[in-house]
Amino acid sequence: MSDARDDTSAAIAIQGARKAYRPIVGAPLRDAVCDVTIRVAPGTIHGLLGPNGAGKTTTLKMLLGLVKPTAGTFMIMGADSTRPAGRRDVGFMPEQPYFPQHLTAAHALRLYARLSGVPKDEIASRTSALLERVGLAGRDRVTLDTFSRGMLQRLGIAQALINEPQVVILDEPASGLDPVGQRDVRNLMLALRDAGVTVLLSSHQLSEVETVCDDVTIMNAGRVAAEGVLDSLLNIEGRTSLRALVPGDALPPDVASRAENIAVSGGLWVFSVPDESVRFVVDAIDDAGGRVVSVMPMRDSLEDYFARLLAMTAGEVGSR
């Protein structure tokens, strides 16, 4: 979790967010989001994860004043973001960026620049610089109805950055992009962080989150299921992962008795052992004429952690 524990120092602070609605008139209220608290430290990339229907987009919409919260407080850079004035230093790219189709790319960016209060004499230079930055240089006079999904996605990122915001909220920014585009988006997020910009990233792409995020909040069934720094969430306490080249077709018996999660390919063995056995196992492999390639804390893949967590919290939700 971020080091910002109070709302004033956090770049984004969501406290006790709740959104309840009635599926039909007269029906009891149903929570889409319940008691969600998220704090994002300035200058970090924070991932917001969860399966479809977890409440991620509803939470972001409440943060941006698009949906009226039933309860909770929403602050961006210390200002109430449910009020328009609190969103003027924010860039937002929705999950599927829609634009007026008759506009050209340059027209669209100019419109959003004017709405964001960008000084008139800076609009043209910022527009061309941003189009180049997102890989749309030379497309400024093309109308948006001819843009592909990926190009609209890139333009969506450009409009989110047009006002040089201190906080950027990206909802599935790599969706619809080819692998090169996805890499560009990752690099862009890292560059924003390097420039001191805070990024809140909602994504299904766990590899993307794992690559760029400093910390994450995982939501399920409208609630926060887990939160924290990625390393501390994924490291499996008490176990160490080893990679070793071992002669023959089996691990030494003393090692095999302690090893778990064993996989082998081309003489390279990958397995985990209890932390207290690491010294013994390394010596045993040495004695057997093998070579230890790496020793590191055992770490779950985000995919496995995510799946396990969702299965666990689904049980909790079912029992509530």
Binding site: L66, G86, V90, F92, P94, Y98, F99, P100, L115, S116
Partner: peptide
Amino acid sequence: ERRTVYNVVAKGVSRPE
């Protein structure tokens, strides 16, 4: 419906505006 309003409202434009 087309959600083009998202980009506008998220830019700090009030709904009355």
